[in-house]
Design a protein around this nucleic acid. Structure first.
Lengths: 138, 138
DNA sequence: ATTACATTTGCAACATTGATGCAAATATAT
DNA sequence: ATATATTTGCATCAATGTTGCAAATGTAAT
Protein backbone atom coordinates (compact mmCIF):
# COMPACT_ATOMS: atom_id res chain seq x y z
CA UNK A 1 0.00 0.00 0.00
CA UNK A 2 1.73 3.05 -1.30
CA UNK A 3 0.98 6.45 0.08
CA UNK A 4 0.36 8.69 -2.86
CA UNK A 5 2.08 11.49 -0.96
CA UNK A 6 5.31 9.58 -0.78
CA UNK A 7 5.33 8.89 -4.50
CA UNK A 8 4.83 12.53 -5.19
CA UNK A 9 7.49 13.42 -2.67
CA UNK A 10 10.01 11.25 -4.46
CA UNK A 11 8.98 12.51 -7.88
CA UNK A 12 9.17 16.11 -6.76
CA UNK A 13 12.79 15.46 -5.81
CA UNK A 14 13.42 13.79 -9.17
CA UNK A 15 14.04 10.41 -7.56
CA UNK A 16 12.66 7.18 -8.97
CA UNK A 17 9.89 5.49 -7.04
CA UNK A 18 11.17 2.14 -5.79
CA UNK A 19 9.81 -0.18 -3.17
CA UNK A 20 12.98 0.19 -1.18
CA UNK A 21 12.54 3.94 -0.95
CA UNK A 22 8.86 3.81 -0.12
CA UNK A 23 9.61 1.21 2.56
CA UNK A 24 12.14 3.55 4.11
CA UNK A 25 9.74 6.47 3.94
CA UNK A 26 7.04 4.35 5.54
CA UNK A 27 9.29 3.71 8.50
CA UNK A 28 9.90 7.41 8.98
CA UNK A 29 6.25 8.29 8.58
CA UNK A 30 5.30 5.88 11.35
CA UNK A 31 7.44 7.79 13.84
CA UNK A 32 6.64 11.20 15.18
CA UNK A 33 10.15 11.84 16.45
CA UNK A 34 13.61 11.30 15.06
CA UNK A 35 14.90 7.73 14.89
CA UNK A 36 18.35 6.24 14.47
CA UNK A 37 19.67 3.91 11.79
CA UNK A 38 19.21 0.86 14.01
CA UNK A 39 15.52 1.56 14.33
CA UNK A 40 15.19 1.94 10.57
CA UNK A 41 16.99 -1.34 10.00
CA UNK A 42 14.87 -3.18 12.55
CA UNK A 43 11.58 -1.98 11.10
CA UNK A 44 12.73 -2.47 7.54
CA UNK A 45 13.33 -6.19 7.92
CA UNK A 46 15.78 -7.85 5.57
CA UNK A 47 17.61 -5.39 3.40
CA UNK A 48 20.99 -4.36 2.04
CA UNK A 49 23.03 -2.25 4.43
CA UNK A 50 24.79 -0.27 1.72
CA UNK A 51 21.62 0.51 -0.15
CA UNK A 52 20.01 1.81 3.01
CA UNK A 53 23.04 3.94 3.72
CA UNK A 54 22.90 5.42 0.23
CA UNK A 55 19.16 5.90 0.40
CA UNK A 56 19.40 7.86 3.65
CA UNK A 57 22.26 9.90 2.25
CA UNK A 58 20.34 10.73 -0.88
CA UNK A 59 17.23 11.64 1.12
CA UNK A 60 19.34 14.03 3.17
CA UNK A 61 20.90 15.51 0.04
CA UNK A 62 17.58 16.28 -1.59
CA UNK A 63 15.94 17.50 1.61
CA UNK A 64 13.58 14.64 2.45
CA UNK A 65 15.34 13.81 5.70
CA UNK A 66 17.48 15.77 8.04
CA UNK A 67 20.17 14.51 10.33
CA UNK A 68 20.36 15.15 14.03
CA UNK A 69 23.46 14.58 16.10
CA UNK A 70 23.07 13.15 19.54
CA UNK A 71 26.05 14.21 21.61
CA UNK A 72 29.19 13.25 19.80
CA UNK A 73 28.19 9.73 19.12
CA UNK A 74 25.05 8.74 17.36
CA UNK A 75 22.90 10.18 14.63
CA UNK A 76 19.18 10.29 14.22
CA UNK A 77 17.04 11.09 11.23
CA UNK A 78 13.66 12.68 10.77
CA UNK A 79 11.44 13.74 7.90
CA UNK A 80 11.95 17.33 6.89
CA UNK A 81 9.03 19.64 7.18
CA UNK A 82 7.76 20.98 3.88
CA UNK A 83 9.77 24.13 4.42
CA UNK A 84 12.98 22.22 3.89
CA UNK A 85 14.74 23.19 0.70
CA UNK A 86 16.92 20.88 -1.30
CA UNK A 87 19.92 23.11 -1.27
CA UNK A 88 20.22 23.95 2.37
CA UNK A 89 18.47 22.65 5.42
CA UNK A 90 17.54 25.92 6.98
CA UNK A 91 15.89 24.64 10.09
CA UNK A 92 14.41 27.28 12.25
CA UNK A 93 13.73 24.65 14.85
CA UNK A 94 15.98 23.05 17.41
CA UNK A 95 16.40 19.46 18.48
CA UNK A 96 15.62 18.47 22.01
CA UNK A 97 16.98 15.22 23.41
CA UNK A 98 15.28 13.83 26.49
CA UNK A 99 18.08 12.33 28.56
CA UNK A 100 15.57 10.06 30.24
CA UNK A 101 13.69 8.35 27.40
CA UNK A 102 16.15 9.28 24.63
CA UNK A 103 13.41 10.60 22.40
CA UNK A 104 14.41 13.46 20.12
CA UNK A 105 11.84 16.18 19.57
CA UNK A 106 11.85 19.06 17.14
CA UNK A 107 10.92 22.28 18.90
CA UNK A 108 10.22 25.77 17.69
CA UNK A 109 12.37 28.33 19.43
CA UNK A 110 11.03 31.76 20.20
CA UNK A 111 14.43 33.23 19.64
CA UNK A 112 17.66 31.92 18.20
CA UNK A 113 20.94 32.73 19.94
CA UNK A 114 22.41 36.17 19.58
CA UNK A 115 26.12 36.58 19.01
CA UNK A 116 28.08 39.69 19.83
CA UNK A 117 30.61 39.33 17.07
CA UNK A 118 29.67 41.92 14.46
CA UNK A 119 32.53 41.15 12.10
CA UNK A 120 31.51 37.50 11.57
CA UNK A 121 28.88 36.73 9.00
CA UNK A 122 26.61 34.11 10.49
CA UNK A 123 24.63 32.09 7.96
CA UNK A 124 23.01 29.32 10.00
CA UNK A 125 22.60 27.82 13.41
CA UNK A 126 22.27 24.29 14.63
CA UNK A 127 20.99 23.98 18.15
CA UNK A 128 20.60 20.91 20.27
CA UNK A 129 19.06 21.07 23.71
CA UNK A 130 19.08 18.42 26.40
CA UNK A 131 16.77 17.92 29.33
CA UNK A 132 13.69 16.07 30.47
CA UNK A 133 10.60 15.88 28.32
CA UNK A 134 6.99 16.20 29.28
CA UNK A 135 6.34 12.49 29.65
CA UNK A 136 9.39 11.78 31.79
CA UNK A 137 8.87 14.66 34.19
CA UNK A 138 7.12 12.11 36.42
CA UNK B 1 60.53 21.83 27.63
CA UNK B 2 57.60 21.25 29.87
CA UNK B 3 55.16 23.98 30.62
CA UNK B 4 54.68 24.05 34.34
CA UNK B 5 51.05 24.94 33.76
CA UNK B 6 50.44 21.73 31.89
CA UNK B 7 51.93 19.61 34.64
CA UNK B 8 49.72 21.31 37.16
CA UNK B 9 46.75 20.94 34.89
CA UNK B 10 47.28 17.18 34.69
CA UNK B 11 47.91 16.90 38.42
CA UNK B 12 44.84 18.92 39.24
CA UNK B 13 42.82 16.37 37.28
CA UNK B 14 44.58 13.51 39.10
CA UNK B 15 46.25 12.30 35.94
CA UNK B 16 49.88 11.20 35.84
CA UNK B 17 52.29 13.45 34.01
CA UNK B 18 53.64 11.57 31.01
CA UNK B 19 55.52 12.79 27.97
CA UNK B 20 52.75 11.52 25.75
CA UNK B 21 50.19 13.66 27.54
CA UNK B 22 52.34 16.77 27.64
CA UNK B 23 53.06 16.31 23.94
CA UNK B 24 49.36 16.21 23.22
CA UNK B 25 48.73 19.25 25.38
CA UNK B 26 51.54 21.10 23.62
CA UNK B 27 49.82 20.53 20.31
CA UNK B 28 46.59 21.98 21.60
CA UNK B 29 48.29 24.93 23.23
CA UNK B 30 49.92 25.87 19.94
CA UNK B 31 46.51 26.33 18.32
CA UNK B 32 44.14 29.10 19.12
CA UNK B 33 41.15 27.38 17.57
CA UNK B 34 39.77 23.86 17.64
CA UNK B 35 41.67 21.20 15.66
CA UNK B 36 40.75 17.75 14.47
CA UNK B 37 42.35 14.41 15.21
CA UNK B 38 44.30 14.45 11.96
CA UNK B 39 45.99 17.68 12.91
CA UNK B 40 46.93 16.30 16.31
CA UNK B 41 48.39 13.18 14.71
CA UNK B 42 50.36 15.16 12.18
CA UNK B 43 51.91 17.47 14.74
CA UNK B 44 52.52 14.68 17.19
CA UNK B 45 54.79 12.72 14.88
CA UNK B 46 55.13 9.00 15.45
CA UNK B 47 52.76 7.70 18.08
CA UNK B 48 50.27 4.99 18.92
CA UNK B 49 46.82 5.56 17.52
CA UNK B 50 44.97 3.84 20.35
CA UNK B 51 46.89 5.68 23.04
CA UNK B 52 46.08 9.00 21.43
CA UNK B 53 42.44 8.01 21.17
CA UNK B 54 42.37 7.11 24.85
CA UNK B 55 44.26 10.22 25.84
CA UNK B 56 41.81 12.49 24.06
CA UNK B 57 38.92 10.61 25.56
CA UNK B 58 40.33 10.92 29.06
CA UNK B 59 41.03 14.61 28.56
CA UNK B 60 37.42 15.11 27.55
CA UNK B 61 36.21 13.09 30.53
CA UNK B 62 38.13 15.15 33.06
CA UNK B 63 37.38 18.46 31.38
CA UNK B 64 40.71 19.35 29.79
CA UNK B 65 39.37 19.21 26.26
CA UNK B 66 35.96 19.60 24.79
CA UNK B 67 34.63 18.12 21.62
CA UNK B 68 33.03 20.04 18.82
CA UNK B 69 31.00 18.47 16.06
CA UNK B 70 31.40 19.79 12.56
CA UNK B 71 28.26 19.05 10.60
CA UNK B 72 27.48 15.41 10.88
CA UNK B 73 30.88 14.17 9.99
CA UNK B 74 33.99 15.26 11.72
CA UNK B 75 34.97 16.20 15.22
CA UNK B 76 37.32 18.84 16.50
CA UNK B 77 38.82 19.36 19.91
CA UNK B 78 39.87 22.39 21.88
CA UNK B 79 41.23 23.16 25.32
CA UNK B 80 38.53 23.92 27.81
CA UNK B 81 38.56 27.30 29.40
CA UNK B 82 39.18 27.30 33.13
CA UNK B 83 35.47 27.53 33.74
CA UNK B 84 35.03 23.99 32.49
CA UNK B 85 34.15 21.58 35.26
CA UNK B 86 35.08 17.93 35.23
CA UNK B 87 31.58 16.69 35.72
CA UNK B 88 29.75 18.51 33.02
CA UNK B 89 30.91 20.69 30.18
CA UNK B 90 28.56 23.56 30.68
CA UNK B 91 29.70 25.73 27.84
CA UNK B 92 28.05 29.06 27.69
CA UNK B 93 29.79 29.65 24.41
CA UNK B 94 28.94 28.51 20.92
CA UNK B 95 31.08 27.11 18.16
CA UNK B 96 31.40 28.96 14.91
CA UNK B 97 32.61 27.17 11.81
CA UNK B 98 33.92 29.30 8.99
CA UNK B 99 32.76 27.57 5.83
CA UNK B 100 35.58 29.23 3.92
CA UNK B 101 38.74 28.46 5.92
CA UNK B 102 37.24 25.70 8.07
CA UNK B 103 38.51 27.26 11.27
CA UNK B 104 36.34 26.69 14.31
CA UNK B 105 36.04 29.58 16.75
CA UNK B 106 34.52 29.68 20.20
CA UNK B 107 32.26 32.68 20.55
CA UNK B 108 30.38 34.18 23.46
CA UNK B 109 26.69 34.55 22.74
CA UNK B 110 24.79 37.49 24.11
CA UNK B 111 21.73 35.34 24.48
CA UNK B 112 21.06 31.65 24.24
CA UNK B 113 17.99 30.42 22.38
CA UNK B 114 14.60 30.72 23.97
CA UNK B 115 12.14 27.88 23.70
CA UNK B 116 8.42 28.21 24.06
CA UNK B 117 7.82 24.80 25.49
CA UNK B 118 7.13 25.36 29.20
CA UNK B 119 6.54 21.72 30.03
CA UNK B 120 10.02 20.60 28.95
CA UNK B 121 12.87 20.95 31.39
CA UNK B 122 15.86 22.18 29.45
CA UNK B 123 19.22 21.50 31.05
CA UNK B 124 21.77 22.46 28.42
CA UNK B 125 22.30 23.77 24.94
CA UNK B 126 24.84 23.02 22.28
CA UNK B 127 24.97 25.56 19.51
CA UNK B 128 26.95 25.52 16.33
CA UNK B 129 26.91 28.40 13.92
CA UNK B 130 28.20 28.51 10.38
CA UNK B 131 29.23 31.43 8.25
CA UNK B 132 32.22 33.46 7.15
CA UNK B 133 34.82 34.63 9.62
CA UNK B 134 36.57 37.95 9.88
CA UNK B 135 39.65 36.93 7.90
CA UNK B 136 37.76 35.40 5.02
CA UNK B 137 35.31 38.25 4.56
CA UNK B 138 37.66 39.49 1.83
C1' DA C 1 3.20 -2.77 -25.05
C1' DT C 2 7.99 -2.77 -26.27
C1' DT C 3 12.24 -0.82 -26.24
C1' DA C 4 16.13 2.16 -24.84
C1' DC C 5 18.42 4.39 -21.34
C1' DA C 6 19.50 6.26 -17.03
C1' DT C 7 18.89 5.20 -12.28
C1' DT C 8 19.01 2.11 -8.55
C1' DT C 9 20.23 -2.01 -6.26
C1' DG C 10 23.11 -5.66 -4.33
C1' DC C 11 27.57 -7.42 -3.70
C1' DA C 12 32.60 -7.35 -2.91
C1' DA C 13 36.04 -4.99 -1.11
C1' DC C 14 38.18 -1.58 1.60
C1' DA C 15 39.12 2.65 4.88
C1' DT C 16 38.24 4.84 9.07
C1' DT C 17 37.00 5.16 13.64
C1' DG C 18 35.74 3.46 18.22
C1' DA C 19 36.52 0.04 21.58
C1' DT C 20 38.49 -3.83 24.81
C1' DG C 21 41.95 -7.14 26.93
C1' DC C 22 46.45 -7.79 28.39
C1' DA C 23 51.36 -7.68 29.32
C1' DA C 24 55.19 -4.44 29.61
C1' DA C 25 56.63 0.09 30.88
C1' DT C 26 56.25 4.08 33.65
C1' DA C 27 54.87 7.59 37.27
C1' DT C 28 53.91 8.34 41.99
C1' DA C 29 53.89 7.71 46.95
C1' DT C 30 55.93 5.37 50.72
C1' DA D 1 64.71 2.17 46.34
C1' DT D 2 60.68 -0.20 46.12
C1' DA D 3 55.73 -1.26 45.80
C1' DT D 4 51.64 -0.23 43.42
C1' DA D 5 48.41 1.73 40.52
C1' DT D 6 48.33 4.02 36.15
C1' DT D 7 49.57 4.31 31.48
C1' DT D 8 51.23 2.65 27.21
C1' DG D 9 51.67 -0.23 23.09
C1' DC D 10 50.04 -4.08 20.67
C1' DA D 11 46.63 -7.37 18.91
C1' DT D 12 42.20 -7.75 17.82
C1' DC D 13 37.59 -6.75 16.83
C1' DA D 14 33.02 -4.19 15.76
C1' DA D 15 30.61 -0.57 13.60
C1' DT D 16 30.30 2.71 10.17
C1' DG D 17 31.33 5.16 5.88
C1' DT D 18 32.76 4.69 1.05
C1' DT D 19 33.62 3.24 -3.84
C1' DG D 20 33.38 0.29 -8.15
C1' DC D 21 30.78 -2.51 -10.93
C1' DA D 22 27.47 -5.66 -12.98
C1' DA D 23 22.63 -6.92 -12.70
C1' DA D 24 18.03 -5.34 -12.01
C1' DT D 25 14.56 -1.90 -12.25
C1' DG D 26 11.93 2.51 -13.19
C1' DT D 27 10.86 5.92 -16.68
C1' DA D 28 10.16 7.95 -21.00
C1' DA D 29 9.82 7.54 -25.97
C1' DT D 30 8.13 5.01 -29.73
Amino acid sequence: MLHLGMKNLLKSKKLRVTSFRTDVLNVFQSHENAIDMGMVEKELGEHDRITLYRTIKKFIDVGILHEILINGESKKYALCSHSCESEAHHHDHIHFLCTDCNETYCLEPQQMPVINHPSFQIDSFEVQAKGICDNCKS
